[in-house]
């Protein structure tokens, strides 16, 4: 390689890191230098191969869970756990069984059936993860249900039930307008110790269903149910028993 430009400047140009003047200078050079033109084409081809190759490796669910467990150990917990260890074992075992089953029975889009939710598990988890990004959790931050509930008025064509369960250990954090499967839905946000729980609420014409067997994906769990013309989906990384407790409070 003899051209000095091809050694470095070409890469700054490829990466969009040159200022306007240097970029223009390189483009002028490119018109007359065949070596650089060939090299640029080769680098662009290499880049697109790398980016299309699927080489990006994501963290596994087990790594996600192990990391959370480690972090739990390094976080001071204000509320001591009262539940004896054998019960956690039982809960753990049932989570595994139920998660394994529901992975297959969670309705896929287009399969129809009375129990199918109008959105997929992936959309649900995405919405939950998105809400955890800085500044995205709530549009209205308040522990007062009389502030959060009216906030949804005029933003949606239905009125989602909003109640604070602070006394039961699930304080209301606020509300948010979210999008699931292309439609606006209400997200009511609760806290459980160090964790966030999103409850998505949207209207339905389907009959009531009990709290649905849970699903598990990317370390997050969800529960689904229908009650009095509303469809609910609660998503979080809290334990299944905690999530179920909140679901039952809302279901009553």
């Amino acid at each position: 390689m003899s051209c000095e430009y091809a050694r470095t400047t070409l890469h700054g140009y490829l990466d969009g890191e040159l200022d306007a003047a240097r970029s223009a200078e390189f483009e002028r050079h490119l018109e007359s230098c065949r070596e650089c033109a060939t090299a640029l084409a080769a680098e662009e081809s290499l880049r697109s191969s790398l980016q299309r190759s699927g080489l990006y490796e994501q963290a596994s669910v087990s790594l996600r869970k192990k990391t959370r467990t480690e972090l739990d150990g390094a976080t001071s917990s204000p509320v001591p756990r009262r539940i004896p260890a054998w019960r956690w074992l039982a809960v753990g075992a049932s989570i595994l069984v139920v998660a394994a089953v529901s992975w297959y029975v969670w309705p896929r889009p287009g399969t129809g059936g009375a129990a199918s939710a109008p959105f997929t598990a992936a959309e649900l988890i995405d919405a939950h993860v998105r809400s955890l990004q800085p500044g995205h959790l709530t549009d209205v931050a308040s522990t007062d249900q009389h502030t959060v509930k009216p906030w949804f008025d005029g933003k949606l064509d239905y009125a989602p039930p909003v109640k604070d369960y602070a006394d039961e250990g699930f304080p209301l954090v606020g509300g948010r307008l979210d999008v699931l499967a292309g439609r606006n839905v209400a997200a009511v946000v609760y806290a459980r110790r160090k964790h966030v729980i999103n409850v998505f609420v949207l209207p339905t014409k389907e009959p009531d269903t009990p709290i649905h067997p849970p699903g598990l994906r990317q370390g997050y769990q969800w529960l689904h149910w229908r009650r009095q013309g509303m469809e609910y989906c609660a998503v979080s990384d809290v334990s299944l028993s905690d999530l179920h407790e909140l679901a039952q409070l809302i279901y009553q």
Partner: peptide, 25 residues
């Protein structure tokens, strides 16, 4: 510090934990 409180944990969940995939990759 060995132990952080719940507020720091919440901030960590918001600012750092979403980059677990980047860390693993």
């Amino acid at each position: 510090s060995d132990v952080l409180d719940v507020h720091e944990r919440a901030r960590f969940e918001q600012l750092v934990l979403p980059h677990l995939d980047a860390a693993f990759n």
